[in-house]
Nucleic acid binder design. Sequence first.
DNA 1: CGACACATGTAACACGTTACATGATTTG
DNA 2: CAAATCATGTAACGTGTTACATGTGTCG
Lengths: 193, 193
Amino acid sequence: MSVKHGLLALLERGPAYGYQLRASFEESTGATWPLNIGQVYTTLTRLERDHLVRALPENQQGQRPYTITDAGRAALAVWFTTPVTGNDRPRDELAIKLALALTTPDIDVSSVVQAQRIATIRALQEYTRLKKQADNGDLAWQLIIDSMIFRAEGEIRWLDHCEATLLRRSTTTPPPSGNRVDVDAPEREATNT
Amino acid sequence: MSVKHGLLALLERGPAYGYQLRASFEESTGATWPLNIGQVYTTLTRLERDHLVRALPENQQGQRPYTITDAGRAALAVWFTTPVTGNDRPRDELAIKLALALTTPDIDVSSVVQAQRIATIRALQEYTRLKKQADNGDLAWQLIIDSMIFRAEGEIRWLDHCEATLLRRSTTTPPPSGNRVDVDAPEREATNT
DNA sequence: CGACACATGTAACACGTTACATGATTTG
DNA sequence: CAAATCATGTAACGTGTTACATGTGTCG
């Protein structure tokens, strides 16, 4: 979905051809999610089939630019005004992994949590490094980095919450020695309306 | 990826057939991510082709159970021990939408943020409702709900951060009256190693 | 010339969704 | 009996990835 509408958004700025669109997309999103060039062309083909874009005649340099149509502009407006819901979000692989680890024999859930925690912290450090590095203009790129930072922080909090819950669950064995569980309370209220 | 390995994890508990596997998967993940039954069969076919599962003879009730193989167990162990990295995470549609909205003419980014904020808060309320309702046993289901809660909270924080950044950016106009921006500082440090 | 960037595409495959077809068994 | 549930599959399509094929232009 994001590629299809992303291309529409880029074409709203003005006509462009496939190769340009990939570059623009990656520039806007800061190369976080590299866009496959093949997919650009196939998506443009589908968009043209659905009358959301229109192909312009090939120019002298062998470039095939496209324009957005009125229908495309309408679809784009719908995309921007319709919030992302839980429905169109993909399955959370980490949550599924943890949930299944709980009932899988010979799997130590804590070690899974630990490994993930380390990996996520490493990612978070990388993001903060990127954030400093991208202290120049590009507002969109900065916000995307912030998004990844917020996400990673939330994930770490959740992992800590998981570990604490797991320890609470095994009331028989006392908590092992080398341990650093300092989780905040799992209960929260919606901040406001 | 999650379906493939999810099925392996369920088969690690013991042999099962497709219909059972869907029910088990949805029970483990609390029907948050309903699993298409057609995909179960096609995935099982691929898993068998790759020698990660083996089909058992069809029984009297017309059921076709599968067993996990040693190779399947190995693949499952790799899945559990390998953390989820930013690479295998799908594109964040919300982040892309916001980033592109910034450079799209005739799009009011603030209204996009507002609409998303409302939708996410609604989702968060639904999650907390689910959490109360699922106060019985199922630990996995509770952790998955918590995961969604943490994610939604992070998203709201990020949206507030976006709005604050946008207002800070437009230094000419004074902040409009009816406004509730009480975001925390965007700067964070990695909590520990 | 040879390597590299530019530019457009196709093929094959994995994964995901919706929809359809087909039957057996259970239950009101 | 009729409807629902159980159970297995296929078809079509969208989306995403990797890889390949093909050609132009530029630069060392």
